[in-house]
Design a protein around this nucleic acid. Structure first.
Lengths: 240, 240
DNA sequence: CGATGTATTGAAGGATTTCAAAAGCCGTGG
DNA sequence: CCACGGCTTTTGAAATCCTTCAATACATCG
């Protein structure tokens, strides 16, 4: 097993940790690693796809651009998240580092052999594809019908949920993302993102310290985002 | 094989025709059929998923609703299209008949056995999931950054491509869909859809006859939609 | 400390929504 | 056959929200 893999601590429940790492070395499953600086391209829409990528550190973004330059960031990926694990022939979107990042790259051919040999892994991959579809549709709903305030709240709550998933606190988010990037993710201009965030700050819903955002009022934010209130039960329970 | 399947003529290249139909009867793969009137519900978001559905005739729509009633129609499905073939535990969206429709229903358990036994089918299912993801992201791009005119043009071109896929003419679309439904699909109000369609009609880009829409100027429409021009080669060829 | 890039704030403009009314379509029944 | 009611579509005018354009403030790094 490569040194980098031995040291890697991406979350349990991730494709890499649970399925790939135990099989490194088997049947040509041999990851290579790559360090990216902010702005470096991982791959472009239309490129033939050769690898599945697992983010080991930093932030990677997936995006699509229209011919006239308008851009949609379809998602931000954090440590433990994977892309290309469904082994497409050709990439249907582009990917670049939104902040300095390191990624593991598993060649498709070894991965495919693994999937065919192990129905459990096949189910896992299909399940992930289904999850991706489900979140894509949630984002479609957001883009189709939410106001700027709702979109930004929705974004913050999603980032919070992602942080929890990788074992970080729910209320203190490290988001080294420019307003432009967030805007391109939410279908808003960076000015509108900025204005909305300062609104939220004035209303004490959030606090901003550099690229760190603290969520001060989760229940109002999740209500704005059209999501069920967070942990309603815990708040009602007496302290232990 | 049930009578309905023997008579069924959904397009080649569909999951049902190519993969399921030849295996009907094997290992518990036994479809049931259902006839739906416009407005009938097929399943709801949150229901436990028991079947994969293949549209045999008519139009079915997949949609999500927010708690306050705002709705996004994530897609319209036509004969040969499938839903739920990725065997999720729980439906992540709702489905109802947008026009009178008939569907084949394959129970998940038989399908799962088939997928595990046949790696080719597994690849096929995964490929379809990937296609769905890709079109979902295209729609996200549309919802995030296109004007009303561009959205409607994009919609018409997609409906045209879908018609071609099932062997129908590219320029005469049968779309028994209310303005409200189209609006909920495009993130617009029905008034905006109506205004935009009459604009297009006045500009001779389309002609409307009841629920039939003829695309009179494919190249302008596809340009508006941000798509490559249609069959540029064919138009340049001399008539045979 | 100045330079560059990013973020904030302001004011005007525009595209879509909202509200409201009129027109068109369709099936039913007199 | 025509009239009627219910429905969808079209059209109009005002309001709203976001964008655009422009200027200022703020940070980070040499």
């Amino acid at each position: 097993m490569p040194q980098a893999c031995a040291r890697c601590r991406v979350r349990n429940g991730s494709l890499c940790q649970d399925f790939l790492k135990p099989r490194v070395g088997c049947r040509g499953v041999q990851p290579t690693h790559s360090a990216l600086r902010r702005g470096d391209t991982l791959f472009c829409e239309g490129d033939t796809a050769r690898y599945a990528y697992v983010i080991a550190s930093g932030v990677v973004m997936a995006y699509k651009v229209m011919t006239d330059g308008r851009r949609l960031v379809t998602g931000f990926l954090f440590p433990g998240d994977a892309m290309g694990e469904d082994c497409p022939d050709v990439h249907s979107y582009s990917a670049e580092a939104a902040a300095d990042a390191t990624v593991c790259m598993y060649p498709h051919d070894g991965l495919l052999a693994l999937v065919e040999a192990d129905p459990g892994l096949g189910r896992q991959v299909l399940k992930r594809a289904h999850e991706n579809l489900s979140t894509a549709r949630d984002q479609m709903l957001m883009l189709a019908s939410m106001s700027a305030r709702e979109r930004v709240a929705h974004f913050l709550m999603r980032m919070s949920a992602a942080a929890v998933r990788r074992g970080e606190p729910a209320t203190v988010l490290w988001l080294p993302l420019s307003r432009t990037l967030i805007g391109d993710h939410l279908g808003l201009t960076m000015e509108t993102v900025s204005r909305t965030l300062t609104q939220f700050r004035r209303e004490r819903l959030i606090a901003i310290r550099g690229s760190e955002i603290e969520l001060c009022d989760l229940s109002t934010l999740s209500e704005l985002a059209g999501l069920p209130p967070p942990n309603p039960v815990l708040e009602l329970l007496p302290a232990v």
